[in-house]
Design a protein around this nucleic acid. Structure first.
Lengths: 166, 166
DNA sequence: AGTGAAATTTATCTAAC
DNA sequence: GTTAGATAAATTTCACT
């Protein structure tokens, strides 16, 4: 992994909001020619700094009316049990996001379902398949206030070197 | 909003994994000509079924080493207080995701920080700015097992009509 | 190193069917 | 829905700093 400069930071800031910007639009915003911009983008992708470029699809429009946040506790926090549950998360399409965490719960899951009945059925299956689950606490999402993978990229952070933008 | 058919469902399934597929690749996968595919995509975007197309950027590569899940409880669940907090979430870049929910907590937030010190400072500021917060329970994320907005789109669901794929 | 301009390749859009 | 031609964008090449 080569190191990133301020221009890279600026590019990433833009595309994490909208990855369909053309190199020309992007170049304009970061004061770079389209080709230079594209070269950087390619590098950022190949180095895994851009992990993926995805469409965020409306769950409601596709009949997945409800979203849940589930706090899952396991019977034991043994490495092999935790790993098995991680694999189960990855293999379960209903799970949008899964975090292994410290504190109140061992795992935090974000999932979608068509209805509460659907979710109840899902929970039943999921419990059955994962004998190590001690308990699940479900919170029904009333409003997806913010749903993104955006995070602040501070262009002036020393980690991005001291390249001038003149 | 016009209604969606199985081909739309198939397109959405693909692009929620990778939105950089060309119309040609996409068309091949869903048995459609590139231009027909593109026409559908355009419609799906303009109708808001595709909400956004974004790059998922590596937090680790940019020095945001830690992710937290925070369960926030408000002092009162009055509509104006809830709305004010929703706006605060939207205005706070450190918050990647925010869900208004029923149950154990009023809000579930996913956030990133450079370090625990950084997070502690953030929490302090956030508390200060939001007088209505009763308490925050933080869970530090040890592993982002799955991080996506993908959800299962069942092509055979009756909601997608009975269009043949021949 | 990395950049920008022009040529080439490739994808997208527009129209006709 | 398709196919074909026009437009536009991504990619490569290359000369330059």
């Amino acid at each position: 992994m080569t190191h990133l400069d301020k221009i890279d930071a600026a590019i990433l800031t833009r595309i994490q909001k909208n990855c369909r910007l053309t190199s020309e639009e992007l170049g304009e915003q970061v004061n770079l020619s389209p080709s230079a911009c594209q070269r950087r983008l390619k590098r950022l992708r190949s180095e895994g700094i851009v992990e993926a470029e995805v469409a965020i699809v409306s769950t409601k429009a596709l009949g997945r009316a409800i979203t849940m946040v589930a706090l899952v506790s396991l019977e034991r926090e043994r490495a092999d049990i935790v790993d098995r549950f991680k694999n189960s998360i990855r293999a379960t399409p209903e799970v949008m996001m899964g975090f292994y965490a410290t504190g109140d719960a061992d795992f935090v899951l974000v999932l979608t379902a068509k209805s509460m009945e659907d979710y109840e059925q899902f929970t039943r299956r999921f419990f059955y398949q994962n004998a190590d689950i001690k308990g699940i606490k479900t919170m029904v999402v009333l409003d997806r206030v913010k749903a993104s993978f955006e995070f602040p990229i501070d262009t002036d952070d020393p980690m991005f070197g001291f390249a001038s933008d003149s």
